[in-house]
Design a protein around this nucleic acid. Structure first.
Length: 421
RNA sequence: GGAGACGUCGCAUAGUUCGGCCUAGUGCACCACCCUGCUAAGGUGGAGUGCCCUUUACAGGGCACCGUGGGUUCAAAUCCCACCGUCUCCGCCA
């Protein structure tokens, strides 16, 4: 949720942000009007309610024979209070409804526009040149006995798969490597629930534009999370945090579930885009003034991982229109996928500033003793998809794959993945 | 799945019988000050969260909050309903 005080004091800033995102500018004026109406109706209600409270004391203190007349009088007052209360509640709901459609104001410098308007901040490494015809990750995965799409489809349907043998080990190795990276950087590991209540899913901002991307279990009124970010953000919901000793940093491991509703026909081959995968996610609760520095820190850790794995990549500053409602800025790192001749997203890190924390009611105590929302950030440190770039980048002519040195400790020192057929 | 108990201001508790004297009492912990010659005790005061109004600010006033949401009533921590959570026992599964 946006800051209602900012809405009142600087609506133009929010309008500029909406404009950059290609979102509704009119919503800002609607929200302002709804806010004025809300406050007026609250004031009216509270005045009546105060009167009723006073009257109630009079009734309680009155002698028996006078009570009956006083009660009759109080009844008309009670009716007025009830009506005013209903008006106030309606006005609050209208305001809440409008205000939740407004996205987090983007940070200064975020490129305006849509998906294609990103800015490349830097690139690392060169796309690998091959002196043979490179195989794509699925062909390699099948030769290695690592990926089984056909049986995935038999058991669960399209976009499901089995990781088998070295494939299964590769994923676990990646997760463990990422976990150790996070531990070294002071993160606390968490294995999170993947089913969450509606208010948590809503609080993280995923029930808006992403609603049809999410698996829902009506019998239990629970949502399957598409990232452990949801549980990690909910972890401290309704709490006042002590950030005196620095940010709270968590590394969450979980399986992620996505319906991929809008992506029919896209990336249908292999494990690029699937309904279920694993991810190690970083999540930080930090003072708002430190959020941008923390964001750089997260993207730095991601780059260290990708570099250690010998991947070529670019870091992009995602354009405003492609941010999602909670993020004020987002850096994606895209690794080179040889057989696609393209950079594909392997990580994403978002600075949600105070937007998510405000919805989930996560605060800290300021020096003056007041409470104020914290900032939250998240970022990927490893996912199943990384296997795609690793296999394709390090493949050899015979179909074997050289294991990046940094990954070997988690594979018992294994240096090369050999085809089994 | 069945039966039952419980959920109160940081923690622990009182209050729910019988609705109004609860702007929720007490203890511990906490903060400030006072007193005291001794690693402590005593005294006084303060202290929760959200929102609304007035104000440049300091501050002041008001409303709401007793797990959550509804309901009854002039009036709800207290009565009724639903939900959530915790605990105990039984059953079932591993």
């Amino acid at each position: 949720m946006i800051d209602p005080v900012l809405l009142r004091t600087n609506p133009d800033l929010i309008k500029r942000s909406q404009e950059a995102r290609g979102a509704s500018v009119a919503a800002v004026d609607d929200a302002l009007a709804a806010d004025a109406e809300r406050r007026a109706s609250i004031t009216a209600f509270e005045a009546l309610r105060a009167e009723q409270n006073q009257f109630g004391k009079k009734v309680a203190a009155a002698p028996k024979d006078e009570k009956k007349a006083l009660v009759a009088e109080a009844q008309t007052l009670a009716a007025q209070v009830k009506a005013a209360g209903a008006t106030a509640t309606d006005a609050e709901e209208r305001f809440a409804q409008v205000v939740r459609t407004i996205a987090n104001p983007v940070i200064e410098g975020v490129p305006a526009g849509g998906e294609d308007n990103f800015v490349t901040l830097r690139t690392h490494g060169q796309p690998r040149e091959f002196d043979f015809e490179p195989r794509d990750h699925l062909e390699l995965g099948e030769m290695l006995g690592a990926i089984d799409m056909a049986r995935g489809a038999k058991v669960s349907g399209a976009r499901f798969y089995f990781l088998r043998g070295i494939g299964a080990r590769l994923e676990l190795a990646l997760m463990n490597m990422a976990l150790d990276k996070a531990l070294g950087a002071g993160f606390t590991p968490l294995i999170t629930p993947t089913l969450v209540r509606p208010e948590i899913m809503d609080g993280t901002g995923f029930l808006g534009e992403h609603a049809d991307e999410i698996y829902y279990l009506p019998a239990d009124d629970l949502y399957l999370t598409g990232t452990s970010e949801v549980a990690l953000a909910g972890y401290h919901a309704d709490e006042i945090l002590d950030l005196e000793g620095g940010p709270l940093r968590y590394a969450g491991w979980s399986t992620c579930y996505r319906r991929e509703a809008g992506s029919g026909g896209k990336d249908t081959r292999g494990i690029i885009r699937v309904h279920q995968f694993n991810k190690l996610e970083m999540f930080t609760y930090v003072l708002p003034e430190d959020a941008e520095a923390e964001h750089e820190r997260l993207v730095g850790l991601q780059e260290e991982m990708l570099q250690a794995l010998g991947l070529s990549y670019r870091v992009i500053d995602v354009a405003a229109g492609d941010l999602g409602s909670s993020a004020a800025r987002k850096f994606d790192i895209e690794a080179w996928v040889p057989t696609q001749g393209a950079y594909r997203e392997l990580t994403s890190t978002s600075n949600c500033t105070t937007y998510q924390a405000r919805r989930l009611d996560i605060r800290y105590r300021t020096e003056s003793g007041k409470t104020s929302p914290v900032a939250t950030l998240n970022g990927t440190l490893a996912t199943t998809r990384w296997i795609v770039a690793i296999l394709e980048t390090h493949q050899q002519a015979d179909g074997s794959v050289i294991v990046p040195e940094a990954l070997r400790p988690w594979l018992g020192g294994l240096e090369r993945l050999e085809p089994i057929r």
